[in-house]
Design a protein around this nucleic acid. Structure first.
Lengths: 199, 199
DNA sequence: ATTTACCTAACGACCGTTAGGTAGGTGATT
DNA sequence: AATCACCTACCTAACGGTCGTTAGGTAAAT
């Protein structure tokens, strides 16, 4: 792996752990085995390194979602949705891309906010659209509650997914699994349930 | 308001906006109308200021939840739970305590992690216990789905609450309201629904 | 000969923190 | 009532350290 790619990977982990302001180019360079000013042979600035990490992470994230959808297109809607939640939990464990994306979504560096947030909103919209399409394709196949729209189901799903992934941020994995086990049956029951409550 | 209380309030807003490492004592002092070293007449260190802000925020948070529960004890379970979500959204708008608590829950300053996380876990457990008791007291009064345990309902509720509050972090209020409107009917339907799906 | 990828040295800015001083209020002693 | 010691709450100046960044040089590869 080239030094530049190493810097991107190491930078991602530091930004995920310490935040943009908290991350130090000196420490990133040391971990890559070079000196701090040598970073400037590959990146114009700290912001440049960060933004390249961000773009790469956004691409990885969207690619991962699309790949999951293709791989499991034969499954039932229920298995696909439930499996996606577990898939993201595993992804979180194996890689700090999700942690990085979440941190920069919730607390973007304020000086780069204008460049960060459009990417974040784009990712969220892409994911929502993909879910909406998924629900629309399955509304007639499975006996879904007809008073729940595809958009509503997708938004509620993303809300639950965020809540579950959040718990993994707290660092204790079993609490995240508890949340998944508690939330999923209630969500799914709310989607397919015959009785619909509207206040 | 005394200078010390001002420093606590201003500090909270800076920690919420910039994080622990990103916040600057100089800027906090300036906003309070004093010079940076004068902070040390009231606090032993930056960590001391931060921890006092944290303890105060935790107390405010728990007090606010208890007060809401007392004030709305006469309402139905449904109104109480749905109202609590709106209550927290309003709280977020009027005050940066929730934002501060969320930021420090998800991304605590690593050098203070050992002092921060016990407080956070305590708050989460307190809230979960309070919700579990609430569900237990209402399981027989209302026609709730008997295959959903009080613990399960409470955990799912907190998952949805986190997901909804998260969206308010993104900064666009209407998205958070969209999430609330989409998630609540599905959650409530999943709780009271006659049909229960267990995989 | 030019470019790439690193280095050392150093810049100015800001960080949290400490030292040391001052002005004003408090409270006891004379 | 006047004096003195003491304390609180601020100040200025400065410390050592780290930050991101730049200048300038070197050795190898093209």
């Amino acid at each position: 792996m080239s030094i530049k790619q190493q810097l991107l990977v190491i930078g991602r982990s530091h930004f995920a752990r310490d935040g943009y302001e908290g991350a130090s180019l000196a420490k990133i360079a040391t971990e890559a085995g070079i000196k701090k000013p040598s970073i400037y042979a590959h990146f114009n600035s700290k912001a440049d390194l960060f933004l390249q990490v961000l773009h790469r992470a956004a691409r990885v994230q969207q690619h991962s979602l699309r790949r999951y959808m293709l791989k499991h297109h034969h499954q039932t809607l229920e298995d696909k949705l439930h499996g996606l939640l577990e898939h993201m939990q595993e992804l979180y464990r194996s890689d700090d891309t999700i942690k990085f994306v979440m941190r920069m979504s919730f607390f973007p560096p304020q000086e780069l906010e204008d460049e960060v947030m459009p990417l974040i909103y784009g990712m969220l919209d892409t994911m929502e659209n993909q879910l909406v399409r998924l629900f629309e394709h399955n509304l007639h196949k499975e006996n879904l509650n007809c008073s729940v729209s595809a958009t509503q189901a997708a938004r509620a799903y993303m809300t639950c997914a965020d809540g579950i992934l959040l718990e993994v941020l707290y660092g204790q994995e079993h609490r995240s699994i508890q949340r998944l086990d508690a939330t999923w049956p209630i969500y799914w029951n709310g989607i397919i349930g015959k009785e619909q409550h509207l206040s």
